[in-house]
């Protein structure tokens, strides 16, 4: 195994380990946070830390995995494309869902101290 392959393998495993840690943390947060708007934080960790990072790690691991032959570049390329899609689409999906949940009042806003968006809507500065 050449030095560059060794470095790629180690980085890949570190990224996959970070992903495993983030999955556990996000799963705990998903179950223990009190309501929908707080759970959005856990969803961020799950999507970026738990999925985007290990996919990149797997692509690097596949690049250094020489037993596969030339097909490993196909695997790495597919992995990078999936990672880029996830990086762009996951936050946008969460945003659309949060906006719809807020304006349709499908999820309760509890505990609420101050809601600046509600005040702005009451003043007429923000429309749905």
């Amino acid at each position: 195994m050449s030095p560059i392959d060794f470095v790629l393998t180690v980085i890949g495993y570190i990224l996959i380990g970070i992903g495993a840690f983030c999955q556990i943390v996000a799963g705990m947060g998903m179950n223990r946070f009190p309501n929908f708007f707080v759970r959005l934080h856990a969803a961020t960790i799950a999507a970026i830390g738990g999925s985007f990072v290990p996919i990149i790690g797997c692509s690097l691991l596949a690049l250094s995995f020489e037993e596969l032959g030339d097909v490993r570049f196909f695997l790495a390329g597919g992995g990078f494309v999936a990672a880029v899609f996830l990086l762009i689409l996951a936050p946008v999906g969460s945003h659309l869902l949060a906006k719809a949940a807020y304006f349709s009042k499908a999820a309760v806003l509890q505990p609420k101290v101050v809601d600046a968006l509600e005040e702005d809507i009451r003043k007429g500065e923000v429309h749905e």
Partner: peptide, 8 residues
């Protein structure tokens, strides 16, 4: 959402 991305 999280489930699907984790499965990916």
């Amino acid at each position: 959402d999280c489930l699907g991305y984790a499965l990916a």
